[in-house]
Amino acid sequence: MVGPITLLATAVVLPAAAAGVLRRLLRTSMVLSLPIGISALLVNLFFFPGGSEVLLRLGPVTATREGLELALQVLARILAISGAITLFYLTTRPAELVVDLERRGVSPRLAFVANASVQTVPAMVDRASAIIAAQRARGLDTEGSIAQRARGLVPIVGPVIMGSIAEVEQRTMALEARGFTRPGRRTLLWHPADSGAERVARWLLVLTVPALLVARSAGWLDLLG
């Protein structure tokens, strides 16, 4: 458990604090990892086979100390992963990402898709909230019981999907009309600054991965668990 937490602290929380996005990072990655985090916590806590030290008995299931430890470890890992992904999105300007990918020889279309998928999330969230508002205005009860809310899913999910399809269609036409489907390299006007320090940091990160793998298999990290 100490491992993922150390990682979370050094690779996610510290850089996020340095970039001034710590609060947004915490909020976003909490929301992202909450559902999977809770289910992982419950499953590992109550269904860990062969734990000996019983902490809590709830009918047919028991929570053991070993289960709790594993659950916390899984949770820490999920937080480390979701935190790292969120940090990437919060600190990377999509336009810069695309330009840089292209400069490194990635096909413009692939670069566009990579970026569009980043941008689609907030657009989807906006659309979904507008749709929820419109359906509530028509008396859809989203504040009632779970059964009532479940009934409200179709009127919300339907327009979200149809709207996304229509938008993709329109965007595709607009892109085609501007020559985006032309084969071959595009002209690039600029590329993001890439300082020496950034390059060094990037290579250090790349080298850290095999180093950690070696350390792990040699048993030097067992202490951290």
């Binding site: 336009a95 810069e96 607009a174 892109l175 020559g179 595009r186 002209t187 006007l189």
Partner: peptide
């Protein structure tokens, strides 16, 4: 109609000519 990947108006307008290489 906008590409959605350009950070400035200048780049957005340059998008078409850039596509043409």
């Amino acid at each position: 109609q906008l590409s959605g990947i350009c950070g400035t108006v200048f780049e957005e307008i340059a998008f078409g000519p850039m596509n043409l290489g």
